[in-house]
Amino acid sequence: MGCEAPIPRPPIPRDPGRWLLYVVLAAFTLFSVFPFVFSVLTSLKGQAFAPGLLPHPATLEHYRELMTASPLFLRWVLNSLVVATVSVIVLAVLSLLGGYALARIPFLGRQAVFILMLASLMIPGQVLWIPNYATLSELGWINTWWALIPGLVGSLTSGTFLVSQFLKGLPEELEEAAKLDGLSRFGTFWRIVLPLAGPAIASVSITGFMASWNMFAWPVIVLDSPSLFTLPVGLNFFKGLHVTRWTLIMAGSMFNTIPVLLVFIFFQRYFIKGIAMAGMKE
């Protein structure tokens, strides 16, 4: 797990405070990890409410049941992967383009766009459900994955916002120089800004993946066919009207949690590389 910052800073002298630092970090780690560990353990228990923290005997029964009880389970996992992958790509590209324009181009209506973006984030989404449903219905998109778009517009807006904030934090000299060299707007974006935007891309991708992967309330409303469901929607089949099968839900949640975690682990390495590539730290 030893992925250190690529450009070593001068080592900090060993002082007693360092032990305290590790104690604080360890305590917070425990605090963060406990619920996750708890759900892993529950998924291995025969009964959700069996006493004690550790499952005894531990059983993989619920994982086996997930595969057999619902023939669509693997399909939902696959659907989630496809939807999340496509969403991440689209979200990253569109937020980079939009964020760049907002951060760097002084254009007419910039302030208005900014305000509209903020405004759209501020209205409770529940009042938009009915109008959006009607629009999708007009478009013939109900019960297709296109109908998931409204559920991701919020992520797109905050992603655009994040990219623009990030770029504003970068010095402009390189771009000014490129402009003087006669590079077009798009050329500047492509050659100068994009290589520097690694960390922002990573952040937008991670948040976008999470948003798409965990999207729940909206897909339930707009998807009708179980074969189109994403995993969080499908998992609710185990949550009955009166009776909930917690062990199955916990086992299923593992499929829900682990891919996001993997994406994060992967991107967070890239994250640091991105900064090294940016060459901003000497």
């Binding site: 780690t29 963060s32 990890v33 619920p35 998992l235 916990m250 949640s253 975690l261 994060f264 967070q268």
Partner: peptide
């Protein structure tokens, strides 16, 4: 890296769980 992943874990754990 370990700490980073550990601290990030809560935000990826499924909401139902």
């Amino acid at each position: 890296t370990f700490f980073r992943v550990a601290f990030f874990l809560p935000s990826v754990t499924s909401s139902v769980a």
